[in-house]
């Protein structure tokens, strides 16, 4: 049981490390590419900005959920 828990913890730590690298790359990309455009949109077209904001956060949720699920499956499969 203890061995199993240690194994789960190790897999989880690796998942977290891989995920962190992916996320850091992702948010620097997003901040650089979208930053100025979103700033102008927020200042000039509030209604469009509101729609874009909700689409971005929902889209990111779906994409990141898929990424984390795939990552969990891939790493757990490899360590079994």
């Amino acid at each position: 049981m203890k061995k199993e828990a240690a194994k789960s913890l190790r897999v989880f730590a690796i998942e977290l490390a891989v995920y962190s690298v992916l996320v850091i790359c992702y948010f620097f990309l997003v901040l650089n590419l979208l930053g100025n455009w979103l700033y102008r949109l927020e200042a000039q077209h509030r209604y469009t900005y509101a729609g874009v904001a909700i689409l971005l956060i929902a889209g990111q949720a779906v994409v990141l959920d898929t990424v984390t699920t795939l990552l969990f499956r891939l790493l757990r499969g490899r360590w079994k």
Binding site: L31, L38, E42, A50, A53, I57, Q60
Partner: peptide
């Protein structure tokens, strides 16, 4: 809303 903060 600052959507950039929310995304990060």
């Amino acid at each position: 809303v600052d959507i950039l903060i929310a995304l990060v």
